[in-house]
Amino acid sequence: MFFSIIIPLYNRPQEIKELLETLVLQTYRDFEVLVIEDGSVNDAEAIVNSFAGQLQLRYFKKPNEGQGFTRNFGFERAKGDYFIIFDSDCLIPANYLEIVNNSLATNYLDAYGGPDGAHASFTPTQKAISYSMTSPFTTGGIRGNKKAIGQFHPRSFNMGVSRQVWEKAGGFIITRLGEDIEYSIRIHSMGFKIGLIPDAVVYHKRRTNFSQFYKQLHFFGRARINIYKFFPKELKMVHFFPAAFTMFVLLTFITNLFGWQISKLFNLLLAVYILLIFFHAWLKNKSAKIAFLSIIAALTQLIAYGIGFMQDFWKRVIFNRS
């Protein structure tokens, strides 16, 4: 099978350098790489071209449209039997394509997704963020998990679709705000087979500080409401958890501010939750520092998502504004 790897890029020259360095090391060699510069001011043309002798590589520049439509630009020009999309902030294990090729040969999927994890080179903050996004104590536990609730939806940081999917379903119809989930649901609704390849792991850097992480998760919360507008039945109870948690934290603050007796119960519940995160993160990462940072990451994730979710739920569902 010949793979086309499609990577949208926006003002991240150093990230694409590190990503391409990992693709050079792939044990499975039947693939091409398409890097599409999406209206970047700080472009990576020189960096990408430096890999020309090591990879089957094509580089494009286009006006800024967002990641969804930029992937479509790559689909239209890809030569492969199967298209794989990565975010530019990913590192790819050397046996990734070999794992995907063997898995598809054994149990063919029209579209697949894979999990993400933290690389040893990541900073403690990045490892804490990675923990939070994959932890069973946050909504991240449903990502890249065999036991996910409902139909599995591949995410665009680590996702593949066959040429047949592209030819029948087309590409992304929205460019941001949950474009990958909408695409996954639409592919599934057309009868294609979608699944998780558990061993097709990528190392996803995500954000390097908590301020950036907050903005990203606030955006994710809004994106869930955008998906609801396309597919109302896809809004599950688990998606309300961050909003409920955010309201609980606010209520805890208020009860402590006014000295209400029930504040003791709220404080206890919050303390137990924080301790669960701390010790689980410590067990996973073997580091007290990362465990402490994981508390900050988890609270940031849930509150940012919850605020974004409530903001657009109120605006777009209650008041039905676009």
Rank of each mutant, 00 (worst) to 15 (best):
V238F: 09
V238H: 10
V238W: 08
V238G: 05
H239Y: 06
H239D: 11
F240Y: 12
F240D: 04
F241K: 08
F241V: 12
F241Y: 14
P242V: 00
P242G: 02
A243M: 12
A243P: 05
A243I: 02
A243F: 09
A243C: 10
A243K: 05
A243L: 12
A243H: 06
A244E: 14
A244N: 11
F245I: 04
F245S: 04
F245C: 04
T246A: 15
T246K: 07
T246E: 12
M247V: 15
M247F: 15
M247Y: 14
F248H: 09
F248T: 03
F248P: 05
F248C: 05
F248Q: 09
F248M: 08
F248V: 02
F248Y: 15
V249W: 12
V249I: 15
L250S: 14
L250P: 08
L251C: 14
L251A: 15
L251D: 12
T252N: 15
T252D: 14
T252M: 13
T252H: 14
F253Q: 09
F253T: 13
F253V: 14
F253H: 10
F253N: 10
F253I: 14
I254N: 07
T255I: 06
T255W: 08
T255E: 12
T255V: 09
T255P: 08
T255K: 09
N256Q: 11
N256A: 06
N256P: 06
N256Y: 11
N256I: 04
L257A: 10
L257H: 11
L257F: 12
L257Y: 13
F258Y: 13
F258I: 07
F258A: 02
F258E: 05
F258D: 04
G259F: 01
G259K: 01
G259R: 01
G259C: 00
W260Q: 06
W260D: 05
W260R: 04
W260A: 06
Q261I: 07
Q261P: 03
Q261L: 09
Q261M: 07
I262D: 01
I262T: 01
I262V: 02
I262M: 00
I262K: 00
S263K: 01
S263M: 00
S263W: 02
S263P: 00
K264F: 11
K264C: 06
L265V: 06
L265D: 06
L265T: 06
F266M: 01
F266E: 00
F266S: 00
F266A: 00
N267S: 13
N267V: 05
N267Q: 10
N267R: 07
N267T: 06
N267D: 11
N267C: 08
L268A: 11
L268F: 14
L269V: 01
L269W: 02
L269E: 02
L270M: 11
L270V: 04
L270I: 05
